[in-house]
């Protein structure tokens, strides 16, 4: 983990670091059907996420993007192939790979601060606790005034900020997010997207995030892995050209970005093609 100041210096440029920091290698997922047959839901997926990069898994529903994310977290296992983080094979969940879920997962019996400190307590990281790690991340997600509140007292967006701060306070090498803003209203959603990009840029986090929202993918992703479905395969990997000079900070900047409309149309067309023949 880098110090926040070093991270801030890196934040404006393109991500630099290990190009195969997170590596999916020929990953397949099979589900057993009746009569001994199997259904291949994910087929031969290989791609890499560069260190300090925000990578988005985008695709129609049923493409297996959430399953890929859960496999990276170690919550599911690939049937074939393997996933490695910093050269180390993923075999199960660990504090190296923090996760934010779509549903609210704040522990209701703990205050906001206790939620954020949960990982450090579990790992016996008393040094980080004493150094004010919780304060730092509470401030990053603008929840300092609510640190003694219980999650039930908070709005949906605030609860997702608790989940984000809780994952980051544990100093993971990789942040995994499964449609983290899917349950939020439109206004809260773009605010959260801007906040997320700000937070992960300043701390130079490597992020893998699942979404089916094209706008969200183009705004957040340095790299976008588009998946086809039935079975899930990598169809195309895009790197939005308008991010060469650095990440965007506001949604308006996205709409003004040169080439934004072309790339959005292109992704929309892929979405439609993948959706064709799907049950309505």
């Amino acid at each position: 983990m880098m110090l926040p100041l070093e991270a801030a210096a890196l934040a404006r440029g393109r991500p630099v670091g290990d190009p195969d920091f997170l590596h999916f290698s020929r990953v397949c997922k099979d589900y057993p059907l009746r009569g001994g047959q199997t259904l291949r839901a994910i087929d031969d997926v290989s791609f890499s996420v560069t260190e300090r990069e925000v990578c988005v898994l985008l695709g129609p529903s049923g493409c297996g993007k959430s399953t890929l994310l859960r496999m990276a977290a170690g919550l599911d296992r690939p049937s074939v192939g393997e996933i490695a983080l910093a050269g180390e094979r993923v075999t199960g969940p660990s504090r190296d790979r923090g996760m934010v879920f779509q549903s609210y997962t704040s522990f209701p019996w703990l205050t906001v601060r206790q939620n954020v400190e949960f990982g450090l307590r579990m790992n016996g990281d008393s040094l980080a606790l004493k150094e004010g790690t919780a304060d730092y991340f509470l401030e990053r997600v603008k929840l300092e005034p609510f640190q003694d509140a219980y999650p039930e007292q908070l709005s949906g967006g605030m609860r997702q900020r608790v989940a984000l701060a809780r994952a980051l306070a544990n100093y993971p090498k990789l942040l995994l997010m499964d449609e983290p803003f899917g349950a939020l209203d439109a206004e809260t959603r773009w605010q959260m997207q801007e906040l997320l990009l700000d937070v992960v840029s300043k701390d130079a986090m490597t992020v893998l995030i699942v979404t089916h929202d094209i706008d969200e993918a183009l705004f957040l992703g340095d790299r976008i892995v588009f998946l086809s479905r039935h079975p899930g395969r990598v169809r195309e990997i895009l790197q939005p050209p308008f991010k060469q000079g650095g990440r965007l900070t506001t949604k308006e900047a996205l709409y003004d970005a040169p080439g934004y409309h072309d790339i959005e149309k292109h992704v929309m067309r892929m979405m439609r093609e993948e959706g064709a023949g799907a049950p309505h």
Partner: peptide, 23 residues
């Protein structure tokens, strides 16, 4: 008990005993 709470604790590095007592 919601599965996501247990899974969240696992990705935060909690072990089996900790999940039983703390979640």
């Amino acid at each position: 008990v919601r599965t996501e709470l247990i899974e969240t604790a696992r990705t935060l590095g909690a072990n089996r005993r900790q999940i039983l007592w703390s979640i």
